[in-house]
Design a protein around this nucleic acid. Sequence first.
DNA 1: CCTTGACCTAGAGCCGGCTCTAGCATCTAC
DNA 2: GTAGATGCTAGAGCCGGCTCTAGGTCAAGG
Lengths: 140, 140
Amino acid sequence: MAGNTSGENSETMGIGEVARRTGLSVHALRFYEREGLLVETVRRGPDGRRRYGADDLEWLEVCIKLRSSGMPLRAIRRYAELVGEGPGNEDERLALLLRHRDDVAAQIGALTSCLDMISTKVEIYQASVTDHSSDPIWAR
Amino acid sequence: MAGNTSGENSETMGIGEVARRTGLSVHALRFYEREGLLVETVRRGPDGRRRYGADDLEWLEVCIKLRSSGMPLRAIRRYAELVGEGPGNEDERLALLLRHRDDVAAQIGALTSCLDMISTKVEIYQASVTDHSSDPIWAR
DNA sequence: CCTTGACCTAGAGCCGGCTCTAGCATCTAC
DNA sequence: GTAGATGCTAGAGCCGGCTCTAGGTCAAGG
């Protein structure tokens, strides 16, 4: 059996295992690394293959959350750079996070307003589906 | 003065005016029409130019809300088709809206969880920025 | 030995959703 | 009658974010 495919609690994982655990594709993992999202490039085994540790996994989960909340790769890269530079730039990290927090809050607000509209339409259509006489409602 | 650029309450508007009012670009407006998002193709003036009515504007606002909540153009097109077919397919419109409503709710859920993570980090960094002694915190 | 499977790099390709360009028509105001 | 604004079409281009391909390495197992 090649690699550590089924390694449940191995100290370091191959890229396939990380893909399984994070839900990212191996392609995406290599892509993220090329794009500089990973604080430091992943360590390699003596065979030149990537070996991920638990810390890498944790950081990837952070990246995934940032991405899934719409942070562009550029910004995540910047954050990773700041983290990689070590202590001393907490103010900049904070500023970046605050900006993104506002952004996410705004997204939630916008989505909530969309949800309202959709729910209103849903109610209208539910009425027109159960009660056929309300067909000619001017609903779109 | 060409067109009805400043028409505040004109019965029909040119594409530029609609762009101003919706925030979409004229390019995007023509693009949306080509893509079939507009229920029926926009009426034209005798000069061959698009004339938008208040109903078009309302529909565009719906499209904008659907788009901004992440509904793909394909789905909006489908919804527009259903609306364009007139009464009789309310069940299908409803199904489509319900699917999207679930989707939006899920998005809000995901974003809220991201917001939590970000807020946690914000707190950590706010502490480390005000209180310099907490620098060596293992924060990322 | 040879197959299988996990992994590697470099780089091309793709998809959604616009955005922009070229080249032209029309209208109004000066 | 010409400048400037507004509009038209067809189609090319762009950007972000992956995704996939080609061609190869390496280790274990049968």
